[in-house]
């Protein structure tokens, strides 16, 4: 397994290098000059020139890439050109907020969706199955921002039970941190529940129709034992791949929820930095997201054999 991990890590290096080059080029191709945006309508030619020089934007683009790449290799991410803050600090703080939000949301979604999907499969083509499916499709169809807005309206504005804006770190106050996270976590989890339930149900139905399940039933195993030993393990493996992909995409793609609930997450940081053409932040955060995706997929692959012994690493 160690060799497998090593191989995957080495394979990730060219992937990330190519990603870094693409990100660098894409960002520079975009029209919009960070120096001009910083100066606003107070700019004049001289101030612009000076600001560009200060930000290192006056150097040839190849030189800029090589400087950035060598900095990256020594884990030197530089400073935000808008606020001057250290990019590594900025990204680490923001990533932790999103990580917290996504992992709790996905955790809750797994707890609800996996049994629901299994149960729907067991009750295939019954009223229960149809109800669970309808609910899943409903949750999948509505955008997360709409759910978020409705939750804000009901629980924040009308009932005033929960805060709608702001963030409290777990290290500052656990109880308050949980209160502030409830609405964003629920908004995110609801959509994911729909996705996981559908996946779990369809793979479970496939497994239920296999010969080894029929054989297990013929052998006289109880339904619970069949469910635990045969159906769950086999059905969960493909769902795990989806879970991994959802975690990967949400870690960089929860920007809408973060913006609505004013959470200082990495998604919002990426969107803000894109608007202000904060090159070091865009480049470092995109690369980080690429790395996270690779890592999550690796973890999923490592977990796969536990659920499906046919898979060998």
């Amino acid at each position: 397994m160690f060799n497998y991990i090593l191989k995957r890590v080495f394979l990730a290096i060219p992937t990330l290098l190519i990603a870094s080059l693409i990100v660098f080029i894409m960002v520079r191709i975009l029209p919009g000059d960070p120096a001009a945006l910083m100066l606003g309508d107070m700019q004049d030619a001289r101030s612009l020139e000076q600001m560009r020089a200060q930000l290192g934007l006056d150097k040839p683009i190849v030189m800029q890439y090589l400087i950035w790449l060598s900095d990256m290799l020594s884990f030197e991410f530089g400073n935000s050109i808008i606020t001057g803050q250290s990019v590594s600090e900025l990204i680490f703080d923001r990533f932790f907020v999103t990580f917290q939000l996504v992992m709790v949301a996905v955790g809750i979604a797994i707890i609800i969706a996996i049994p629901s999907g299994l149960y729907a499969a067991l009750k295939h083509n019954t009223f229960t199955d149809h109800s669970i499916m309808m609910l899943s499709i409903f949750l999948l169809s509505i955008p997360s921002f709409w759910i978020a807005l409705m939750l804000v309206l009901v629980f924040g504005v009308e009932l005033r039970w929960l805060p709608t804006i702001g963030y409290v770190a777990l290290s500052d106050n656990v109880q308050e941190a949980i209160r502030y996270l409830i609405l964003p976590v629920v908004s995110l989890a609801l959509v994911v529940i729909g996705q996981f339930t559908r996946m779990m149900r369809s793979t479970s139905i496939d497994i239920l129709n296999t010969e080894f399940v029929l054989n297990a039933r013929a052998k006289g195993l109880s339904e619970i034992q069949i469910l635990k030993r045969h159906i769950f393990k086999n059905a969960f493996a493909p769902t795990l791949t989806i879970i991994g992909m959802v975690i990967g995409s949400l870690l960089g793609g929860a920007a809408v929820i973060e913006t609505l609930f004013t959470l200082p997450g990495i998604g919002r940081l990426m969107v803000d930095s894109l608007y202000s053409r904060d090159y070091p932040v865009i480049q470092a955060s995109t690369l980080l997201m690429g790395g996270v995706f690779v890592l999550v997929n690796l973890l999923v692959d490592l977990l796969y054999p536990f659920f499906d012994p046919r898979v060998k690493l």
Binding site: V152, G156, T164, I165, G166, T259, L260, T262, R268
Partner: peptide, 11 residues
């Protein structure tokens, strides 16, 4: 308080 979205501000 940093609130990028106007509807969140109104809420």
């Amino acid at each position: 308080q940093i609130i990028p979205d106007i509807s969140s501000s109104i809420a």
